[in-house]
Structures are given as structure tokens and as C-alpha cells.
Design a protein around this nucleic acid. Structure first.
Lengths: 348, 348
DNA sequence: ATGAAAGCGCTAACAT
DNA sequence: ATGTTAGCGCTTTCAT
């Protein structure tokens, strides 16, 4: 076992390797970083010495020198939200193909924490930042400041008043599919359970819901627009409110994400409201647990791998350019996944 | 808006601040890092210049100089497993109190990926590493090598043949509680649905299950020990196997984690096996979704905040010491959470 | 109290 | 093809 020494953690440096191999540090560097011309013999000797000494690069030193870290930072609103973790997984895969690593931070749904995380990622010289802003307006300043310093792309959510790349889904189009499906299943009135309008997903989804419901002449009462947060608890609370109202709940409850929908279906069971018989319910995101609900959730599947790939591509492009180039806003159209919480069968 | 320049991302350095304030870089450093004696006047001037220029430390440079990064690395087997994400959340909180940040990596349940992540964390000079090893034996070499270089504590899972600190739960004691509860509910035979024995949690939990079931004279047939992976799918598959066997499933199915248990209860619904009437089911971890199962899961609640706090404490202690000191293995006794997937009511 | 200067480990001109 | 050397941005002796 190796003994820990010095402030360095007892790390072997290239000069030790150089000394042992009887060459200069430059040669060692050339061999180990694989750049420049070195003879086979030198290469062998250096490699041997490095192995014998158990040399590992110090990427801090390398980063200082290169001002590149091969690391991308990512900030998500909540690491316990399964949608974001699967998005993280997709991003990691996309990054892996470029030999980059991910430095993940949790904003704890708090713009102040988020601002700290962004600053600290910038201080650590990450090569780029992927952020899903936790707040629709308050996240703005920190996101913009960060974007002014290094490549940044917003993912899924978007914060107003910022000028950056963005990749996400077309919430309006998604909601159109949802409402059409519900309507085909016989729904003539609908409620919306979302989060307080502090982020773009929620806003856009509500907007899409309103628009298409109006198009189809579906009844949407003001007291059926229920805004809380992205959580199971909130879904449960929403049903309690809906059930208590005179006339009972509408024909459908459209949820802004699957967590809420899971809470809604659970509460419906508790309140003995048949789903989808009495009320149809839809989610959004298609997290793994969506299919486990009772009944399994009809929901909108987000193309996470594609979203992640586009984000990584934009970042790489931005890193290459000297000048900031024009911004891209990429909205992918998601797909409706029909399960058992809605009455299947369209017009045909 | 600021323009990006140079290889540096156009960052302001202390020499620019020094020049503007008309002082030396040493003074700037003293002011900004809050160390050393500086007159109030100087402090003011430097602070002013730094603000005007929008100075932010370059933590790469600082880290190279200090060989300290105030960052802790964490590696988990799977970032999509809700148990690990909530553990991450707890660790972040604990770290936040020390002003440290977390660099989170996903091992994708693959010891080779895990080894790469560990090496890369070490290369980035994190101050310590918290790892939940993905494999019971194959994770060994990489974990030990890393532990030889810097403070490391294993969390939750433990890999054999390593000499490091560890914090987790007492799986044997936990299983004892589970089996006693099941037995009190009338179970006289039991199956175990876990993961292949490639990690300590699974091994220990099976061991605890076997021991206590034997103590109480519960029937445990070999074909009732079902080992797959920690996933909902595996839980579903396990029930299919159990239901197909002559005589049908045993009185209880003990699961090594909640994901498996969620799959088990779901499959029981599909197979019209009443839970807890015909079969009692238990989970492990108490993830958020455990209470959402149908029926809600009886499970073992892991004291995540406590586990995280102990881990951070051990890391801090190790960072302080020059010599490696004796190892600590801290096993916390978890608490059984009784819900609807078991027949409640103990002996009394 | 302040400044000059060395150096953390690495890489890339620039020599040879 | 290989070596010499000058820094990347910061902190910290050591002088003054």
C-alpha cells in the first residue's frame, strides 16, 4: 500500500517520471498526452517509468494550463425528480461519446442555490453548462451572467429574458395531443393540475391546455386550474379540492407532470373515483413509475436521449466558436403514450 | 454584455485587479482569500477594483496551488435509483454545512465505469470520495487504490477485501425486524427476491432473511430464493416464477429493495394474488414511491440523513489526519415502516 | 502592512 | 526527435 505524503497526496509528477526515464518533462508530457512526435524507444521508456511509478495525471494542473477541463456542468432543479435523473443519465451518455465528464449539481428548487452552483461551476472552468432553470424569472440573472462567460444551454425549462441556446419539447403541441386524446375518449370538461407558474414548462403546458380545450369547446372552470408544485402530494391535494367542489370533478384531469398525476390517481382511488371511468387522467414526462400507477398512466413521453444529444451538440459547437453565434431554440415534438388512465380509442 | 476573449474565457485575474487597485497581487490575494493582515484602506480599494472588474476566483488555479478543492466526489451505482438520489440529496445537505460541494458520478452499475469515475475524481483532486460500490468483489481494486490515495468512505454497500471507512445500515438487524413482523402477521413460509449476489446489501439481506426465517422455523425453499437485479421488472418476473410453481407462492415475499417490491405487488395484481391477504410483501429503503404502491409498501426506512452526516464526518476527520488512522465501520439500525402490504398487528 | 518572487504540475513555443 | 523554458492564476514565504 502506498503511503500518503506532502500536500499533494503523494502524487507522482511528470518530473519524477522524467527523472526515472532519463528524459525531459517535455518528452514525458508528449508521451502521456499523446501529442507531438516521440520515438518508439522513448515512448516505451517513459511509459514504463510512468507505470512503475503509478503515475496519474493531475487534471487540475492540466486544466490550469489548457484552460479546458473536459468537464461539463449540469444543474437540475431537483435531483430526486425521476424525470431529471433520467435526463442526467441521457446527458452522461451523450457526453461519454465525446470523452467528457459530467459535474452534476442540485439546485434544490431554489434560485439562490442555483446561482451558487452556476458560479461555482464557472469558477471550476467547466467547458460548458447545461441547466434546467428552477424558476421562470428569478433564475434569469444568474443564468444570463453564466451564459455571458461560457457556453450554456438551457434544457427542458427556459427562463424568460435570457439569450441562450435551449433544447426541450414543444409543450403546446404535446398538450394538443393530450387534449385531443381525452376529447376522443369522451371528455367534455377538464381540470389542469400543475405547478405555480414559476417555470416555463408549467406555463407552456397550461397555455397549450387552455388553447386546445377552447378550440374543442371543452369546459374549463377557473377553479379547475390547480397550481401547486411538481409533487405527488400536490396531486393528492388537487383531487381533494376537485372532489369537494359542487358537481364533483370534471371529465378529465390533465397533469403537468407524472408525479402530480401519480398523486391524482392515488387520491382518486382513495376517494373512490373511478379512473378512467369517471375521470380520465394524464401525466407528462413518462418517468419509469408512470407505468406502475394504478391504473398505469397515459402520459407524454419526452425524447430524453434526443434532447440530451442536441444539448451536447450545441455545447460543443459553442465551445468551438470564438464569437457567440446566433442562438438556437430546439423544440422536439413528444409522443403520447396511451395506457390505462384514459379511455382509449380515437375517432376511428 | 461581456465579450468572450482568449483561452481563458476572458476571465479577470488578480493581476488585473492588482493593477487597477494599484497594489501587488499578494495584497489582492490576501484580501480576497481573507487571509493575512491588510489595512482597511487597502481592503476597500481592492474590493472596489475586484467588484468593478467582476472578478471571480479561478478555483482551478487556487486548487493547484492549495492542493485542496473543497469538493467531495460521490459515485453511486445508478443515478436513476430513487434510493441513491435521496442519499445524494442528504449528502449534499451535510456537505453544504461545511461549505463543500459535491461532484456526483454515475457508475452505471458497471465496475469499469466506476473505476474510471474514481480515477477521474482522484485526478481532479477532490478532497474525499464517497462511494457506494456497484459490485461486491469487482469494485474492490479500484476502490482500494483510490482509498490509498485519498480519504474515502463507502456508503450503504461495502466491497469485500477493502480497508476503508464504511457507513450503512445493519441489514441483518433490519431483516430480523421484517421477518418478525411477517411471522406475527401469520406467515409461515417466505420467498426472497433480491439481486444477484454481487453486492453486499443483497448478500447481507439474504443472510439476515435466512437466519431469522430459520430461527422461527419458516419454510424457505431453494426455488424461492430469486436473484436478479434491483428493478421493477425483476420483481415482476419473480412473481411470475413463484406463481407458476406447484403449490403457488409462499405466505410472504421479502424483497431486497423497494423497486423489486413495487414490481412484485404490481405483478400480484396482474396475477390476481391478493396482497396482503394471500401473500405479504415487504420492500427495503423506503423510497418515496413505496407509499404509492398498491397496496402501499411495508418497508425498511434507511436513516439517510444520519448515514450522510456520518460519512461526511468521517471524511473530514480523515482529511485532517496525516496518518491513515484506524478504520470505522458504522452500522445504523433502520426502522420498519408498516403500511398495507403486510398484515399488521404484532403479538401484543 | 505591503511587495517581490517562487512555484503548484503541466504543456507548448522555441531551440537544438 | 528531444530539451529548455516560460508561463496558466493563485498563494505564500521572505524581505522590506
Amino acid at each position: 500500500m502506498q503511503q500518503r505524503r506532502g500536500g499533494n497526496g503523494g502524487r507522482v509528477t511528470i518530473s519524477e517520471v522524467a527523472e526515472r526515464a532519463g528524459v525531459s518533462t517535455a518528452t514525458v508530457s508528449r508521451v502521456l498526452s499523446g501529442r507531438g512526435q516521440v520515438s518508439a524507444e522513448m515512448r516505451r521508456r517513459v511509459q514504463h517509468a510512468a507505470d512503475a511509478l503509478g503515475y496519474q495525471v493531475n487534471s487540475i494542473a492540466r486544466a490550469l494550463r489548457n484552460s479546458r477541463t473536459d468537464t461539463v456542468g449540469m444543474v437540475v432543479p431537483s435531483i430526486t425528480n425521476p424525470f431529471f435523473t433520467s435526463l442526467v443519465e441521457s446527458v452522461e451518455h451523450a457526453l461519454g461519446r465525446d470523452g467528457k465528464e459530467l459535474f452534476l449539481c442540485d439546485a434544490q428548487s431554489d434560485p439562490r442555490v442555483e446561482a451558487r452552483r452556476l458560479a461555482s461551476l464557472a469558477a471550476r472552468n467547466v467547458d460548458g453548462i447545461i441547466v434546467s432553470p428552477s424558476h421562470g424569472t428569478e433564475s434569469g440573472p444568474a443564468v444570463q451572467e453564466t451564459a455571458d462567460r461560457l457556453p450554456l444551454v438551457q434544457l427542458d425549462r427556459f427562463v424568460g429574458g435570457t439569450d441562450t441556446d435551449w433544447v426541450g419539447v414543444d409543450d403546446i403541441a404535446a398538450m394538443r395531443q393530450v387534449i385531443d386524446h381525452l376529447h376522443a375518449g369522451g371528455a367534455r370538461s377538464a381540470a389542469f393540475a400543475g405547478s405555480r407558474l414559476t417555470n416555463s414548462s408549467s406555463e407552456q403546458r397550461l397555455e397549450g391546455f387552455r388553447r386546445r380545450a377552447a378550440d374543442l369547446g371543452m369546459a374549463v372552470r377557473d377553479e379547475w386550474i390547480l397550481l401547486g408544485d411538481y409533487s405527488v402530494e400536490w396531486g393528492e391535494a388537487a383531487v381533494a379540492a376537485l372532489a369537494a367542489a359542487p358537481g364533483g370533478p370534471p371529465d378529465a384531469i390533465v397533469c403537468a407532470d407524472d408525479l402530480i398525476a401519480l398523486g391524482v390517481t392515488r387520491a382518486c382511488r382513495a376517494h373512490r373515483i373511478d379512473v378512467p371511468g369517471r375521470v380520465q387522467v394524464t401525466g407528462f414526462d413518462n418517468i419509469e413509475f408512470a407505468r406502475l400507477g394504478e391504473p398505469a398512466l397515459t402520459t407524454v413521453d419526452q425524447p430524453r436521449d434526443r434532447i440530451a444529444a442536441e444539448a451536447v451538440r450545441l455545447l460543443a459547437a459553442a465551445a468551438g466558436d470564438a464569437a457567440p453565434g446566433p442562438r438556437a431554440h430546439i423544440a422536439l415534438v413528444p409522443r403520447l403514450v396511451v395506457r390505462d388512465s384514459t379511455r382509449a380509442g380515437g375517432p376511428e
